[in-house]
Deep mutational scan, measured.
Amino acid sequence: MTEYKLVVVGAGGVGKSALTIQLIQNHFVDEYDPTIEDSYRKQVVIDGETCLLDILDTAGQEEYSAMRDQYMRTGEGFLCVFAINNTKSFEDIHHYREQIKRVKDSEDVPMVLVGNKCDLPSRTVDTKQAQDLARSYGIPFIETSAKTRQGVDDAFYTLVREIRKHKEKMSKDGKKKKKKSKTKCVIM
């Protein structure tokens, strides 16, 4: 069974824990209790493949930012979460993405942009803004509501699919490099 290491990042209060708990335990946590770091595991079937999701729910508070490099190193894919009623959390996505790329030393890291709290009427981040940002990053965008469960499975499952595509691409690139290195030079 394939294991996928997913990391949920975003500013404090955007609903990272609520999304994760909704996926794992099928219930909505409405009281806000700032996370330092929590880890969850769940076995699911995605596109006919049974897999184990190892999900790291991270601290959004700035005082825990020193811990970010460590979990970013171990993560295979990242859910970059903002709240649709919090423009600052949307603007912060850029910083999370840049930090992930720096730590992973790669421009090509599996990510999904997630606009959470889409059940709320007080939207300050337009869907088109988020779609445009995701398009500019070359990553999928999904709106979710941890409260109603809308888009929750889709967000995590899409990230797994992005990781699969990335692994497939990397193995193809690896095979191309191996083929090239088999060419021999004969000096007579």
Rank of each mutant, 00 (worst) to 15 (best):
N86Y: 02
F82Q: 03
Y71A: 15
D119R: 03
E76F: 07
G75K: 03
S122G: 14
M111D: 00
D108E: 10
A83V: 02
P121L: 09
D105A: 08
R102G: 09
S106D: 11
G115Q: 05
L120C: 09
G77V: 10
L79S: 00
F82H: 10
E76S: 09
E107F: 09
E63G: 04
D69H: 10
I84T: 15
L113T: 01
N116F: 00
V81C: 09
I100A: 03
F78V: 05
K104V: 07
S122D: 14
M72W: 07
R123Y: 11
L79Q: 00
M67F: 05
V81K: 01
R73W: 07
F90G: 06
F78W: 03
A83I: 01
D126E: 09
S65K: 10
K101Y: 04
N116D: 06
M72Q: 07
R123E: 14
D108Q: 07
E98R: 04
M67S: 06
L120Q: 14
I84W: 14
V125A: 13
L120S: 08
T74K: 12
E98T: 03
N116Y: 01
P121R: 09
C118T: 09
P110E: 01
Y71Q: 14
K101T: 11
T124G: 13
M111Q: 00
L113Q: 01
D69Q: 12
L79E: 00
D69A: 05
G75M: 05
M111C: 05
D105R: 08
K88V: 09
C118F: 12
T124S: 12
G77R: 00
C118A: 10
H95R: 14
P121Y: 10
N86L: 02
S106I: 10
C118E: 06
R73M: 10
M72G: 08
P110S: 03
E98D: 06
M72H: 07
S65V: 07
N86C: 05
T124M: 11
I100H: 02
G75V: 09
G115Y: 07
N116H: 14
A83F: 01
A66P: 08
M111K: 02
Y64D: 04
D69P: 08
M72R: 07
R102D: 03
L113P: 00
G77S: 02
S65F: 05
L79C: 04
C118Y: 09
V112G: 00
V112T: 02
R123V: 12
E107W: 08
N86M: 03
E76N: 08
P110V: 03
D126K: 08
P110G: 01
D69T: 08
L79T: 00
T74P: 05
M111N: 00
T74G: 12
V109L: 04
V112H: 01
R123Q: 13
K117Q: 12
S65A: 12
D126N: 08
S106W: 14
R73H: 12
M67T: 05
R68V: 04
M111S: 01
S106V: 11
N86S: 08
V109S: 03
F78P: 00
C80Y: 09
V112E: 00
V109C: 06
M111P: 00
R123H: 10
H94L: 15
D69L: 02
C118P: 06
V103G: 08
D69E: 11
K104G: 07
F82I: 08
L113K: 00
G75A: 15
E63K: 06
Y96L: 15
L120A: 12
M111R: 00
Y71R: 11
V103H: 06
I93V: 11
C118G: 11
A66D: 13
L113W: 08
F78I: 06
G75L: 03
R123I: 09
C80K: 01
M72K: 07
P121K: 11
T124D: 14
S106N: 13
M111T: 02
V114W: 00
Y64R: 04
M72P: 13
K117W: 15
I100S: 02
R123N: 14
R73L: 08
E76Q: 11
N116C: 15
G115M: 12
R73K: 09
R102I: 03
E107V: 11
P121N: 12
K88W: 09
K101V: 07
A66Y: 12
I84M: 15
M111F: 11
T124C: 10
S122W: 08
G75Y: 07
Y71W: 12
I84D: 15
S122Y: 08
Y64G: 03
K88C: 10
T124P: 10
T124I: 08
V81M: 11
R68A: 09
Q70R: 09
D126M: 08
G75T: 08
G77E: 00
F82D: 01
C80D: 01
M72L: 06
G75F: 10
Y64P: 03
V112R: 00
K101S: 06
L113E: 01
C118V: 11
S106R: 10
V112F: 03
R73N: 11
V81N: 03
R73F: 08
G75P: 05
V81G: 03
E107D: 10
V112Y: 02
N86G: 13
A66T: 11
E107A: 12
S65E: 11
P121M: 12
D119W: 02
T74Q: 10
E98Y: 02
F82C: 14
L113C: 07
F82E: 02
